[in-house]
Nucleic acid binder design. Structure first.
Lengths: 143, 143
DNA sequence: GACCATATGTCAGAATTCTGACATGACGCA
DNA sequence: TGCGTCATGTCAGAATTCTGACATATGGTC
């Protein structure tokens, strides 16, 4: 039996970093009246308007049902808007409102500060390598 | 505004990898009748017997209340055991049962295979560096 | 000894997220 | 045209996890 320390595995440390990141983001976003999943949704829409609920769910790694809840709350808060009828198929293309763009931009500054803190001890080259490694790891598991 | 792709951030890719890892672990552990949080609990106990509920919660990055639910299910399944009265203070030191050790050992093999898949494209030296970087990142956020 | 801060286990309730299921619309193919 | 497959939005219900609160036990401090 190898009996290696489970805390010294990539899997465990990934979980640890993600927990710390989530906590940091929740704290920073509370000021803006947003939760982390809500921010993820706004960020995706900021870069790709007209995404459907299902596409947003895949982008944020949650179920369609969960994203639907997020989307309804954002809609109720006036940060996003969806047409009442689908222009094609069943997908409802979602867009940020002007208010949504303002909130996103304000929140993004704080989130980028956290991202900077996250990679504070890495130089740009190391960060680039890390990013590529993470992408490789996700693909290695998916297939 | 930088307007960089949010998907090309360390934070986003961390979330992505962790989602893939969680899915892979859930699938592998289902065969053993375990969930990922339950496995995390067993693994911690396997290396440090007599951990209390609160210590296990911190080790698995969940609340005390959540870990308590996990612990009760494991107790009901006969994989762990706790004294009914605290030997000191209020903490109840938990231990694996013989059955718990058997299940853990069987499950660990599958989880280690996933860990191997995760780091498949990294040589031992790169893995060591990655591990250190992840630990640094968690600390950078915590303080 | 008295008091206060801290840590633990636990109850109660809410929030979040999930799985299962179903109806609907688009598309490919016989 | 008709049919099967797939994706989407949504409803219903359960599972999971969280926050808030409280009683209890320990240890330090006066």
């Amino acid at each position: 039996m190898t009996q290696q320390d489970a805390r010294r595995t990539v899997g465990y440390q990934l979980k640890r970093v993600q927990a710390a990141l989530r906590a940091a983001m929740d704290g920073a976003l509370r000021v803006h009246g947003l939760t982390t999943p809500q921010y993820a949704c706004l960020e995706l829409l900021g870069q790709q308007p007209r995404l459907s609920n299902a596409e947003l769910a895949r982008g944020a790694f949650v179920s369609r049902q969960s994203m639907n809840v997020v989307l309804r709350n954002l809609e109720e808060a006036g940060l996003v808007e969806r047409p009442s009828t689908a222009p094609s198929g069943r997908a409802l293309p979602t867009r940020l409102t002007a208010e949504g763009e303002r909130v996103l931009e304000a929140a993004r500054a704080d989130v980028l500060a956290i991202e900077a803190r996250l990679t504070a001890r890495l130089d740009p080259e190391q960060t680039r390598i890390l990013l590529a490694q993470l992408e490789d790891m996700a693909e290695s598991l998916s297939q």
